[in-house]
Design a binder for these strands. Structure first.
Length: 277
DNA sequence: GGCCAGGACTATG
DNA sequence: CATAGTCATGGC
């Protein structure tokens, strides 16, 4: 079931219902509401309500971007079907792809909010931010609100104290407003970062206050389609490797990087399948 | 109730 | 540079 791989914590920018999915498409893609429903194991039905026929190519491109559909994973499966750390997850999660954040501001936001807190709480905070600063329209199908994540400019009048009221820490509030300001001023854009190497992307992103190596690699993985992103400081990654290898303690960043050597070129998908393991 | 979460910054040797 | 302290709060 293809839709199984959507992030189970997301609650605002799309809704999973009856094994299907409904969302208000991003600005610039379409103004319509897209319904995605499983027809069979390999076939999805897409229904666009409130948009126009001319939106179809943009919608298709958006889905390819969101779910990394242009990636040929054949070599990855072939190479790592016997890998001691990956093999089991490759089998049980066969067909999974990186579910990304095509929106750079959204990716940076969840990256910052996700630092050093449990993921569920991070998504709770993201939901509060969306409800406070984002935009919505009513879904005529069921009357539910469909939300778009806020644009950087939507945070222009927002203060640290406003974000503190949402239980976002003061420091993270400062990081977020800093990133929003940088992006609203046009100094940071996805299109500019996309063609750059992972090293240069990481170097640019970590110049921003609040973006360290973990967040930079997270964004490279979830938003910039890099294939060698590897957030070695990631607690979830460390815990899953610890469990899979039966270690006494979590592997260090250096140990994890040593373990990752066989995955050279496929670090992003190795990370993805380890997260799902 | 204590420990840990899909970390990063800052101050201090 | 390497290390320790700080931030904040939910989930188990």
């Amino acid at each position: 079931m293809l839709l199984r791989w959507l992030d189970r914590y997301e609650t605002y920018t799309y809704e999973i219902r009856d094994q299907g999915l409904r969302l208000w498409l991003p600005a610039g893609v379409s103004d319509g509401i897209l319904a995605i429903e499983p027809e069979s194991d390999t076939l999805l039905t897409l229904t666009l309500a409130g948009g126009t026929q001319a939106d179809q190519p943009a919608v298709a491109a958006f889905l390819r971007d969101w779910w990394d559909l242009d990636r040929d994973l054949g070599p990855f499966y072939a190479q790592f079907q016997e890998d001691p750390l990956l093999a089991a997850s490759l089998r049980s999660n066969y067909g999974a792809r990186v579910v990304g954040f095509p929106d750079l501001f959204e990716a940076l936001t969840i990256g910052i909010l996700g630092q050093q807190v449990n993921v569920q709480f991070a998504y709770t905070l993201k939901g509060r931010l969306t409800a406070a600063c984002g935009h919505h329209r009513e879904d005529p199908e069921d009357g539910h609100r469909r939300w778009r994540f806020p644009q950087p400019a939507d945070l222009a009048g927002v203060t640290v104290d406003d974000l503190r009221d949402m239980q976002i820490s003061r420091r993270k509030a400062e990081y977020l407003l800093g990133v929003a300001e940088e992006m609203a001023a046009g100094k940071l854009q996805r299109g500019t970062l996309l063609p750059l190497s992972l090293e240069v992307q990481t170097q640019r992103l970590t110049q921003l206050r609040g973006i360290g190596p973990w967040t930079a690699h997270y964004v490279a993985l979830k938003c910039l389609h890099q294939q060698r992103a590897f957030p070695a400081g990631d607690a979830g990654l460390q815990n899953n490797v610890k469990r899979l290898l039966g270690l006494e303690r979590k592997p260090s960043v250096e140990e994890l990087q040593t373990l990752a050597r066989p995955w050279a070129g496929w670090e992003t998908y190795a990370t993805w399948f380890l997260w799902m393991a």
